[in-house]
Structures are given as structure tokens and as C-alpha cells.
Design a protein around this nucleic acid. Structure first.
Length: 958
RNA sequence: GCCCAGGUGGCGGAAUUGGUAGACGCGCACGACUCAAACUCGUGUUCCCCUGGAGUGCGGGUUCGAUUCCCGCCCUGGGCACCA
């Protein structure tokens, strides 16, 4: 039998299609197993060898579980809404759906070329109206829900309305923004618009005026996870903070549950830690300081502000993006009270000034006339700076005195109020009590402005708080009246109790997690299914879904800066109401797609409850770690909410998560003398003033030599290139970098599959190393796995119809044992090596039984399914090897009857001693002592101690 | 700065609960086959001052025994970054 990989690839793939072997059944009596890959965004560049790393691993698990009799769900789809297709549309006028479809077609071909066993009957595309109909449906569910902190779950908005009818906001414990409140009587008196304005503060999908990340270059707002170092994740454009009326998702309501849920998930520590940080729970207290009246400017219009909650443009939305407060009923106190959050209330006696964020809504009120010009100038400067600028110089401190003072709650001393941009409006209350003695940032401002620094925590080591803040939480309170002598932890507790008893503050938990901005001023996304009746948002009736993307003449904003959907001719609901013009962000469709695979054709619901109950959580989810704070958090949030609302029976979507590492490219550079067309071989480059330029890796051979002719004809700009030396090889320089089109280091998996066969690519990617690890792609090693496949095929020449020998069975069962253990940890590099060891061992046996070879074909199948299929056919197997049962492990063949003991003297291995496995420790010891070499290594000493670990090792100490 | 992961031959990497460090593969060297080359097969391949010694980033420690456990440091990759 000759090894013919490309021929076998085609034949096996045809057989799989004919027999529909990857079909997942429902209903079914078999046990379900759900293996999921993060579905790709179909970009124009196609797949490179890095993408399939995770797909191959999950494919191996799927195939393995199928052999073991599980009903395996292993689907694939496309995350098809996104910016690149839209940018291309803006440039060319081509509808994004067209480019997207072309790209999807190419992706599907590339995935199939590698023999990945997906159930394509269940494919989903997020841009398909039959799919996004249900994304819109989920949005409507969230719009129609609120989070009840009493029951700790999301509930239909009707239960909130019932509460408001009965008692107003009294006794209500809900996740919300701002300080919405009303009595039952006030609620009863409100008109529809006023009621909706109030409800918006509670809905899980809501609209509010808030500070958002605005990216002028992309013309859209972005979520926090889409902004990296003050630049947009896509495209790297500057991002600024800007207040806008926007749709948001109240993910902050689920902060504690998203935190707690991590404990039971089988995910990597680093992803869990990343999420914990992103959620950022901190415990402390809210503390209220009374603003000293004499100093307050324009006190007149104060009182009304805090009582808002009525009217469509209510003023209480100003702090909308701040995480929800523990309380809902206490008034913020308007300009009379300055409220801060602190994790160190024990240091309150060290608070020598207050700092509020430049965006703080009360700042204007608190600024005295004398200071007004200076404060306004400062705020304007802070607003103009982009996030990036603000982050760039965290070293320089700046701030301005407002002219106002607050009263210290315990000492009654006046404390000056400052504003500085190191205090963020988006966290806590947007104000802090500055304790320069024990907080480095407060310390920096105090130093710069000459404000007093007081020590209120004593340490065992000598500390000088004038020089540096003492921030450790291990110390005892001092100069703090009733707190003196208490250890920090106790002092915090005591300080909070004291504040609570005086009604000046309370214990609270603060989260860093912000609500997620949900609207995008873009075309290529799901339309938000909201219509406006007299300016009041209402959800479309579910039976009007899908709300399809309208045709537009251009994919750009309108002249007035409205999103592209405003260009549509009649963008109104069935009832004729104007529709929302922003679309959903990229993460909407990917937040629930794993549910749709369970029931992809359902026209009555996103997923039938019975299908969701049968398949349950994803057993294994494989994908990149770059989604740690985006997709992986949002999809958890939606799953929790859908669970609470009764649509599915589990809270957490992904039981186990494995992050595959990145495959890096090995870029090639030539040295070109600056300002010339002359290329210098790398070893001579030091003699010239050269620049390093990327060249395509396909122009370079294994000896790192670039071909002159192909370089000259590679691109027009390289025509007429001259070379030094003029004869002989031209060397390139190599460097490991991220694999990317622009670095010309991309290797395509389908091209490799055409050259070596799909199985060689699969095996090689797995053999490269542990799945989670990043590693450079080096095709040189390919010959190793090709050799293994050829050797495997050559075993067929040894086959006979008789019974299998004990030797060959021992090899077989050791392999089964190893493979079964490896699949649990996805340790497929060692699986490949174990198969190599087995094949090498069988190669040394003159004859092999047909049954052994058949079993081997099944063991090989998850890794190299095409070759296994060819072997299976040759061995007379029925149907497809994909559906064959896994060979049962017979542990008898794993038992060894003798053990080769390494014998150590003082920890150094000196010789081996073969002993029967049944030998006792005493027998082993006497055998060692009787051994001729023992006397030599003891050099006349008598052993102090002989350690015998049965079955393992002997160590003679002496 | 804080948090997480990692550091083993020329290279990718392997090593159950602490128990023969370097499996498997690449590369390299030598040999067989061949007129020759490719393919294939075989042998060797951690290093050194080689009857021995050293050795898993560095320095200590625990242990009969440490890649594995503990303490301190260095480096690499990733995450967060004025979060009060």
C-alpha cells in the first residue's frame, strides 16, 4: 500500500459528506458532549496556520468522544458583522454582505481542507436575519428586565412596575444608575414618558447620557475592552471621552455573580484572574462630608437637583456610567454633601483635603467666584486631553483648589476641596478624601501643592510619611481618637460602624466593572429593535422581528452626523414610529451563538428549552485568550440573564475553557543599503549603512538564502535590485514575530495540506508543543510527522490473519492508555510522540495481526482521520472509521512482570538491577547488597541506610 | 507599580504523588543502498579538563533523593494600570 495523502484526503472527505458522519442528533438516547471553537470573523486574509491550532485540538477531542459513544456536538459558524467589511464597503460601495459571503466561502473551504469534522447543518452566521432576529429578541428580553438585588436575579420589568405601583421606590433594592426615586403617589401621577424615564434607570438594556469612549476616526463609540492604551483596538485610532445619549447593557448588576461564578469554572488561572481584575471588587465605605455653607457659591439652585427622576431629560443621568450604588433611597444631598468612596476609612483622621474629578457634576457649584476662572480653565484642559495623553503622563501631578471647604465628620475641622484629573468620574462617587500620608497619589498632589501630610497609621519599621506614603495595610491607627491602637483591619471596621451610627456613611462594595455601551454609529451590525413614540423608546413587538438592515446609498454617517441607518428611505416601524439608528456592537451576536447551535433552525425561539436542557453547558470551549474581558465576560452576562428569565437551565455557558497559544511567524529580512537598490547578504551587512526590510518568507529557502530572481520579480519596487556579493548566496535575517500579512510571514494551512496532506499538517501542529503555549512556526519539522505517517502505512505489509502476539498487544494497550489520559489534558504533543513510539516498536516485529492494525486505525483516526480512513478501507472495515468504537483498554497488558531498578549511591545512579515485580523491599535490598558492583561503589564504607521504593528506585546512603 | 504564566541540549519539547533529566521529533555527523542524487534504513548526538565530573535562569534551604517543595533574586511573555 502506497502513501498517497492528497488522494486520500479527497476520498475520505467525500465519504464523510456522503455518510454525514459529523451529524449531531437531537433527540437522542446517547450522552451529549458539546465541543466548541470560538467562531472566526471571516476576514479577507483567510486562515493562517495559527487559526487551526485550536480547531485541530477540539476536532481531536470531538472525534475521540464520538468513538467513545457520545453524541458529539461540534459546530462551526461565522462572527460575520464587523468593521473591516464595512470599511471596504465605504471604499468600494460594495455591500458588506457580499464581501462577507465571499470570505465565508473561503474560510469554509480552508477548514474543510484540513478535515475538521464540523456539523455544517448547524452553521450559524451572525449577519443572517434568521439569526439576528434572535439577537434582537435577546435585546428585547433585556430591555424588558431589571435586576432585583433582593432575589439576586434578573426579573421581568413587570415585577418592578408592581413594586412601584404599591410602594414607589421605597424598599426597592435594585441595580440602577443615578438616584431614581418616587413615592407610589408620584408614580401614579406620572405620564408614560415620565414613567419610562424612570424605568430606564433599571432596565438591563437602557439608554442614558453618559461619558463614552468616542473614536472620531471610526465615527463610533467603543466599549472599554475595545480601547487599548487610549487607542481603538481596531485600527489604533485615538479615543476621547465624550458625553452622549447611548444604549448600554447593565452588566454591572451581575458583577458579584460573574465574580463568584468563576470559582466553579475549569478555566486557566490567568483568564480567571484577568476577569477578577476587570470586575475589580473592592470593599470599603461611602462617607459623606458636609459642605461648609459659607463657602458654597450659588447655593440657591441646589436643593432640587437630587430629587430628579421625572421628565424625559432628567438631570440625574449625569453620573450614569458609574457603577450602581448599594443604596437607592438616600439622597445624594446635592451641593450640601460631598460623598466619597474609600477602602481605608480607618485613615479618615489623616484626610487633609478632598479631591473631586474635573467632570464631577457638582464641581461648578462648589467653586467659589474667586477660583472659578482657574477651575474652569483646568477642567477644559482635562476634557481636551485624550485618554491616551492622560495615561501618558501619570507622573506629572496637577490640580486646582475650588475655594470650598467641607467639614471633617469627627473633628469638625474644615478641609479644602480640590479638583484633579487623577480622580476619575467613572469610579466610586468621582470624589475621594485625600490621605497623603497613606496614599501615594494623594501624597504626590500634597507635595506638589504644599498641602499638609499627617501620619495616622503607625508601623513597626520607621516611616517618614513626609517623604513617602505608607500604604501597607499592616499597622496600627494613631492620632485618630477612638481608633488609636487598633490594627488596620479592625480600625476599618470600627470606623465604618462609627460612621453608620452617626448616619455619615455606610459599608459598601464597589466594582470597577462598568456598564457596557451597546450602540454603534455603524451600518454593518444588528439594528436595535427599538422605536420611539414621542421620543420615548419602546421595544418592537417580537413578531415584527427580524428588523432587517435597510438598504442605504452610502455606508457613511449623514451630513448631520446621524448614523448610516438614518440614510434609509423609510426607517420606521410597522406602526410608522421612527426607529433607532444605531446598531449593536460586534459582541452582541457572539454572546449567545453557542445556544443557537443547539437548535439552529428554530423559528419560535432562539433555542428550544428541551434542546438547551439536553446539550447543557459547553463541555469544552477552545479559543484565544484575547477575549478574556470582552466576549468571555459578555457571553457569561447574557447567559446569566437568560437563565434568570427562564429561557435556559444553566448560568454559566462554558464549563471548561482552553486557550490556545499564538503561532508566531518567522519573518525574513534583507539588508538594503539606504537610498539604493542594493541588497547585502546578512553576514556583510555590518559593513554598510543598511535598513532591514521584510521579504516574503516563500522567497527564502531552509538555509536562509533568498533567491535573487524571485526577489527581483516579487514586487515592482524590487525590480533591478543589485546584490552584494554579486555571486553566491544572499542570506536573510530571521526574526520571530506575530504572524501577519503585513510582515510577509504568513503560512497558509491549505497550501501546506496540498503539499504534505491534511493529516501531516494536523499532526505537526499538535506535535509542536503544548496547546496553550505560543511558539514559532517552523515548517522544517514537518518531515518528522510525514515519516511517521509513511511508517504507519508501511505496517500494513506485516499483516496476517492469525491471532495477535503478546508483544504487539502490549504496545497497543500502552498506547490506548496513554492516548486516553492525554485527551483529558489536551496534551496532544505527547499523544503524537506516543503513537510514534508504538509504530517504531511495531516496525521491529515481523508480523502484525489484522485486529491490531484495525485497532490502530481507530486510535490514529482523531489525529490523522484521512490516513486512518485509507487504512480502515484497506483492512476491510465497514463504513467510516470515524464511527468505529474505541478499542477497549485491557489493563493486563500494562502490568510489568519485572522492574529495572535504578540503583543510586548517595543520590547518584550507578547501575541497573532487574528484579521480579513481586520482589519485596527486603528482597530488593539484599539483591542490591549482594551485587558485585555494590562493594565497588561503597569503596569500603558500610551503608548507613538503604532506601527501597518498591517499583521505583533504590538509594544506598553511606 | 500590581497580578498571572513561564525559563530544561544547536532547535521544538518530554518527565504520575519529589524517584534513572533530556522521551519523541527536527537539525547535525557517520555508515548502508545508489554510477550519482533523492527516498529509505542503521548508528551516534547535554556539556567538560571523559576510568571521572558538572548540569533543568541565579543564590540559598528542606530531603536518602529536587526540573518538581520552600525563601530571596534575575529574565521572558501576557493582563491591568491614577480604580481611591
Amino acid at each position: 500500500m502506497e502513501y498517497r495523502p492528497t488522494e486520500w484526503d479527497a476520498r475520505a472527505q467525500q465519504l464523510w459528506r456522503d455518510l454525514n458522519v459529523y451529524r449531531a442528533d437531537f433527540p437522542s438516547d446517547r450522552n451529549p458532549f458539546y465541543v466548541l471553537d470560538m467562531f472566526p470573523y471571516p476576514s479577507g486574509a483567510g486562515l493562517h496556520v495559527g487559526h487551526p491550532l485550536g480547531y485541530i485540538a477540539s476536532d481531536i477531542v470531538s472525534r475521540f468522544k464520538r468513538h467513545q459513544g457520545f453524541n458529539v456536538l461540534h459546530p462551526m459558524g461565522f462572527d460575520a458583522f464587523g468593521l473591516p467589511a464595512e470599511q471596504y464597503a465605504i471604499q468600494t460601495g460594495q455591500h458588506p454582505a457580499v464581501t462577507t459571503e465571499v470570505n465565508i466561502e473561503r474560510y469554509r473551504e480552508q477548514l474543510n481542507r484540513l478535515g475538521l469534522g464540523f456539523d455544517w447543518n448547524r452553521e450559524v452566521q451572525t449577519c443572517d436575519p434568521d439569526y439576528y432576529r434572535w439577537t434582537q429578541w435577546v435585546f428585547i428580553q433585556l430591555f424588558g428586565a431589571w435586576y432585583n438585588k433582593q432575589s439576586e436575579r434578573a426579573e421581568p420589568i413587570e415585577t418592578l412596575v408592581a413594586h412601584l405601583n404599591a410602594r414607589g421606590t421605597e424598599g426597592l433594592n435594585a441595580a440602577c444608575h443615578g438616584e431614581p426615586q418616587c413615592t407610589a403617589a408620584e408614580w401614579a401621577a406620572m405620564d408614560a414618558a415620565q414613567r419610562e424615564a424612570l424605568l430606564q434607570h433599571f432596565r438591563l438594556a437602557y439608554r442614558s447620557e453618559s461619558l463614552v469612549n468616542w473614536c472620531p476616526a471610526l465615527g463610533t463609540v467603543l466599549a472599554n475592552d475595545e480601547v487599548v492604551n487610549g487607542l481603538s483596538e481596531r485600527g489604533g485610532h485615538p479615543v476621547v471621552q465624550k458625553p452622549m445619549l447611548q444604549w448600554s447593557m447593565r452588566i454591572s448588576a451581575f458583577a458579584q455573580r460573574l465574580l463568584d461564578g468563576l470559582d466553579d469554572l475549569n478555566w486557566s488561572d490567568s483568564i480567571k484572574e484577568t476577569q477578577r481584575h476587570w470586575i475589580g471588587r473592592s470593599q470599603g465605605a461611602r462617607i459623606r462630608f458636609t459642605v461648609l455653607a459659607g463657602e458654597v457659591g450659588e447655593v440657591g439652585k441646589v436643593g432640587e437637583v437630587g430629587k430628579a427622576g421625572q421628565g424625559a431629560n432628567d438631570p440625574m443621568s449625569s453620573g450614569a456610567n458609574e457603577p450602581t450604588s448599594q443604596r437607592t433611597n438616600e439622597p445624594m444631598g446635592g451641593a450640601n454633601v460631598l460623598e466619597v468612596f474609600s477602602t481605608r476609612p480607618d485613615t479618615i483622621f489623616g484626610a487633609t483635603f478632598m479631591v473631586v474629578a474635573p467632570e464631577h457634576p457638582m464641581l461648578g457649584e462648589w467653586t467659589t467666584e474667586a477660583q472659578r476662572a482657574e477651575v474652569e480653565a483646568y477642567c477644559e484642559r482635562a476634557a481636551r486631553r485624550s485618554e491616551r495623553d492622560r495615561q501618558a503622563d501619570t507622573k506629572t501631578v496637577s490640580g486646582v483648589f475650588t475655594g470650598t471647604y467641607v467639614e471633617h465628620p469627627f473633628t469638625g475641622a474644615p478641609i479644602p476641596v480640590w479638583t484633579s484629573d487623577y480622580v476619575l468620574m467613572g469610579y466610586g462617587t468621582g470624589a475621594v478624601m485625600a490621605v497623603p500620608g497613606h496614599d501615594s497619589r494623594d501624597h504626590a498632589l500634597a507635595k506638589a501643592m504644599g498641602l499638609p501630610i499627617v501620619q495616622v497609621v503607625a508601623s513597626n519599621e520607621p516611616v517618614d510619611v513626609q517623604a513617602e506614603a505608607y500604604e501597607a495595610k499592616s499597622g496600627r491607627a494613631m492620632a485618630s481618637e477612638f481608633l488609636d491602637g487598633l490594627a488596620t483591619v479592625e480600625a476599618i471596621d470600627r470606623a465604618i460602624s462609627e460612621l453608620e451610627s452617626r448616619g455619615l456613611g455606610e459599608r459598601t462594595v464597589q466594582y470597577r466593572l462598568r456598564d457596557a455601551v451597546f450602540g454603534r454609529q455603524r451600518y454593518w451590525g444588528e439594528p436595535i429593535p427599538i422605536a420611539y413614540r414621542d421620543g420615548v423608546p419602546e421595544a418592537l413587538p417580537v413578531d415584527e422581528l427580524p428588523l432587517k438592515l435597510p438598504a442605504v446609498d452610502k455606508y457613511l454617517p449623514t451630513e448631520d452626523g446621524e448614523p448610516p441607518l438614518a440614510r434609509a428611505e423609510r426607517w420606521v416601524s410597522a406602526e410608522g414610529l421612527p426607529l433607532e439608528t444605531t446598531t449593536m456592537p460586534g459582541w452582541a451576536g457572539s454572546s449567545w451563538y453557542f445556544l443557537r447551535y443547539m437548535d439552529p433552525k428554530n423559528t419560535n425561539a432562539p433555542v428550544d428549552r428541551s434542546a438547551a436542557d439536553y446539550w447543557g453547558q459547553v463541555d469544552l470551549y477552545v479559543g484565544g485568550s484575547e477575549h478574556a474581558t470582552g466576549h468571555l465576560l459578555y457571553s457569561r452576562f447574557w447567559t446569566h440573564a437568560l437563565h434568570d428569565l427562564g429561557h435556559i437551565g444553566f448560568r454559566e455557558p462554558f464549563k471548561r475553557l482552553v486557550n490556545q497559544g499564538m503561532i508566531q511567524g518567522i519573518s525574513a529580512f534583507v539588508h538594503r543599503i539606504e537610498g539604493t537598490q542594493t541588497v547585502v547578504s546578512a553576514e556583510l551587512a555590518g559593513q554598510y549603512s543598511t535598513q532591514k526590510l521584510h521579504v516574503d518568507v516563500s522567497l527564502v529557502n531552509e538555509r536562509n538564502e533568498v533567491d535573487r530572481d524571485s526577489l527581483s520579480t516579487w514586487m515592482p519596487s524590487w525590480a533591478g535590485t543589485e546584490f552584494i556579493p554579486s555571486e553566491g548566496p544572499i542570506k536573510v535575517e530571521r526574526e520571530v514575530e506575530k504572524m501577519s500579512k503585513s510582515k510577509y510571514n504568513v503560512v497558509n494551512p491549505d497550501a501546506l495540506a496540498d503539499q504534505y496532506g491534511a493529516d501531516a499538517v494536523r499532526l505537526f501542529e499538535m506535535f509542536l508543543g503544548p496547546i496553550e503555549q505560543s511558539k514559532p512556526w517552523d515548517t522544517q519539522g514537518m518531515s518528522g510527522v510525514v515519516g511517521f505517517l509513511k511508517k504507519s502505512v508501511r505496517l500494513m505489509e506485516k499483516r496476517h490473519d492469525g491471532a495477535a502476539s503478546a508483544d504487539e498487544l502490549r504496545i497497543l494497550h500502552q498506547l490506548i492508555d496513554k492516548l486516553q489520559r492525554d485527551v483529558e489534558t489536551l496534551s496532544f504533543n505527547t499523544s503524537v510522540s506516543a503513537m510514534m513510539i508504538a509504530v517504531n516498536a511495531w516496525s521491529g516485529i515481523p508480523q502484525l495481526a489484522q485486529s491490531t492494525l484495525r485497532d490502530f486505525a481507530v486510535l490514529l483516526e482523531p489525529f490523522a482521520p484521512h490516513t486512518a480512513e485509507a487504512l480502515w478501507a484497506e483492512l476491510g472495515g465497514e463504513g467510516s472509521v470515524v464511527l468505529a468504537p474505541y478499542p477497549a483498554l485491557n489493563p493486563e497488558y500494562l502490568v510489568k512482570d519485572s522492574i529495572n531498578y535504578p540503583v543510586q549511591f548517595n543520590g547518584k545512579t550507578r547501575f541497573q538491577l532487574e528484579m521480579p515485580a513481586s520482589a519485596s523491599a527486603a528482597e530488593v535490598e539484599s539483591a542490591v547488597m549482594a551485587h558485585e558492583k555494590t562493594a565497588h561503589f561503597l569503596e569500603g564504607r558500610s551503608p548507613k541506610k538503604v532506601i527501597v521504593v518498591p517499583g521505583r528506585i533504590v538509594n544506598v546512603v553511606g
